[in-house]
Amino acid sequence: MTPPALHLSGIARIGGMRIFGPLTLEAPAGRWTCLLGPSGVGKSTALRLLAGLGDEVAFEGGAQAADGLPLTDRVALMAQSDLLMPWLDVLGNVTLGARLRGQRADEARAREVLARVGLTEHAEKKPHALSGGQRQRAALARTLMEDRPVVLLDEPFSALDARTRARMQDLAAELLEGRTVLHVTHDAAEAARLGHRILLMTDAGLQDVTPPEAAPPRPYDAPETLSFQGRLLRLLMETQ
């Protein structure tokens, strides 16, 4: 499946209150788009609409793939909370999707994916026996196992410590390459490292900010990354 571009435009309201919009959001095919903005600006709502989850949202507009085909079965989701089932071991969690669809779980592939995220030795452990970083890696493995062309990330690294976060960013950038990624974050440093495209979302609407030339994941200590991070933060502070 070639990854499609994502397109969302409209006004979203919850219980009569405007959450965002009118705005138009485009995430180019096969690229990593960061949706950066302060809390409460409706970033996650936009992501949920694309995932087909916004039941609570009254949405006037459309959230779909740019190729016109439905996004169902083409999307994988990774959130801030790892959403691992505490009663399943890592392998069980990684293969959960297959079993939820009534398919046979491909254990060999699951172990391959676990090896790629560095969890080979933890395959038989339950989530509570893992560290925060390992749990997020298990969640990433589950996302990879789904093998969907579109990946929606909702602040997946924001609960991790700085070192673990930087490692997870590198790993995710490497493993999700070539897919259409929409990454919701409130962290300017993260957006500066990861985005091919960076959309700044504020109450005023969306603003496209051109990132440095270097391909993501950009080194966290490179002067261009740092100055761009500063610029993003400045924009975040100035736009209301």
Binding site: A51, T72, A76, L77, A79, L83, M85, R99, L100, R101
Partner: peptide, 19 residues
């Protein structure tokens, strides 16, 4: 959030119930 994840994964209601 668990139910949302299951829905995105394409799960039917009876499997969501039992699993």
């Amino acid at each position: 959030d668990w139910l949302g994840l299951a829905r995105v994964m394409g799960a039917g209601p009876s499997r969501v119930m039992w699993r």
